[in-house]
Design a protein around this nucleic acid. Sequence first.
DNA 1: ATCTCGATAGTCT
DNA 2: GACTATCGAGATC
Length: 224
Amino acid sequence: VSAFELASPLPRDFYLRDTVEVARRLLNCVLIHVSPEGLTAGRITETEAYTRDDPACHGYRGQTPRNAAMFGPPGHAYVYFTYGTHYCFNAVTAPRGAAEAVLVRSVEPLAGLELMALRRGLVKKAPTDVSRPLTEAAALRASIRWARALCGGPGKLCQAYGLSRERNGMDLATGGPLWIAPPLPDSRVSPDADIIATPRIGITRGVELPWRFYVRDDPYLSRG
DNA sequence: ATCTCGATAGTCT
DNA sequence: GACTATCGAGATC
């Protein structure tokens, strides 16, 4: 039984702060999903904020069937399908009626890596033990490369976690199969002071807003 | 390392 | 009909 199963969910209040602040605070928190196939968990390494008066926000032009979860209560999942191929996972923030959310763009996988690889269709490419000795630095580079292949992107991590339509709207704050736990005490990345803000990725409106966040020197990003 | 391009399907105009 | 909060492959430097 994984210790992650016992990690308690962030309370609903966590999601009721200013959305940009939530995006920063979610860094280093742990995203956990328990599915019939098994448990997957990982440290959140990259986030983006989307707010009600932000033209890049799916809720900007009003509520539709697709974005309804964004208009719902905070602390729920907003999972949407895009480009005909991928899902993206958001944590809904702001009170009911206000469409705001934080997109989780990248995660450092911590548990369920084999299941992730299976879901990602990467089983054959898993790093194998080589007979030739590997320096410690090279081994670390290889493990980071593997982690990014599994969860280094919003579509990748949804596939690795098995997140899709069925998880849209799900409550993240009351326990249950999908939730976010506080940072691990031994979190090897320094907190707060070192948060970098950049423009968000893959959008065409609101490009000037610096609302993509990650911790300085964290290698587990969707892009270098 | 950085780029360009195509796949693919749901949603909205 | 146009667009999309992406990914991976292939080309090019």
